[in-house]
Design a protein around this nucleic acid. Structure first.
Lengths: 120, 120
DNA sequence: CTATTTGCAAAGTATTTGCCACCAT
DNA sequence: ATGGTGGCAAATACTTTGCAAATAG
């Protein structure tokens, strides 16, 4: 089951993944999907992002516990995602925060678009 | 009522705003809060952002229909926010997207921290 | 047999909608 | 009367939790 989940690709919502699994014949429960997703996210096996309309989506990064800070370029259509880094952004965020006297700074940066394949 | 809503400050969730209004003595309905919030957002009178944990929060920008593209530096504690711009970020996002062949690019960038006042 | 995993169903929480009452015109 | 605004309550949608059956060790 864990396996079946890990084989899913791209950023998908829990509900979406659940539906896919059922269609694929697995008789899995919704709670199981949520439970694993949370576990994965906790272990760093999955990235979590919230789309513009507030949906929570997950994506598996592979088995590598590569915990490096990165952001995503996500296809709005198919959910496919590229992991990207941006020293420029990190610097900008820190600078902005510092200038206003904010501490314990974090930031969320996600880029959405339509990938070459989907754009046709 | 519209007025009472507009007087709220900082980024707050709908539920939060609703609670405040009730405490302040207004006998307002939750739906009214949501309806106005959506209207405001549509008119550009309010900015909407989703916090890291998926909560939807709103903030009033004043009466100016100043629709310029900007981001926020938000205090995690009190909800206060500074509107910031970052040409560097815009450029970076476009560049990253272009490099991977993505089109119709958009991005969400929010910086969270604890403001000087709250950090004490 | 005990511990873990899983699925179902129930409970929660957040948001949207339907509908009727109320206010000013 | 008429249109718009507002409140309550019901309906949705998404996520979490309780619990007992199934499975593994």
């Amino acid at each position: 089951m864990r396996q079946a989940l890990l084989e899913q690709d791209g950023f998908r919502s829990a509900q979406d993944i659940y539906a896919s699994l059922r269609v694929q014949g697995h008789s899995v429960g919704l709670s199981t999907v949520y439970r694993h997703l949370q576990t994965f996210a906790g272990e760093g096996l999955a990235d979590v992002i919230h789309t513009a309309d507030g949906e929570t989506t997950y994506r598996f990064c592979g088995d590598v516990g590569d915990s490096k800070h990165h952001h995503h370029l996500v296809c709005r259509r198919c959910g496919r995602a590229e992991e990207v880094q941006g020293r420029a952004v990190e610097r900008w965020a820190d600078e902005v925060a510092r200038r206003h006297g904010y501490v314990q700074v974090e930031h969320t940066v996600e880029v959405f678009g339509v990938c070459a394949a989907c754009a046709g």
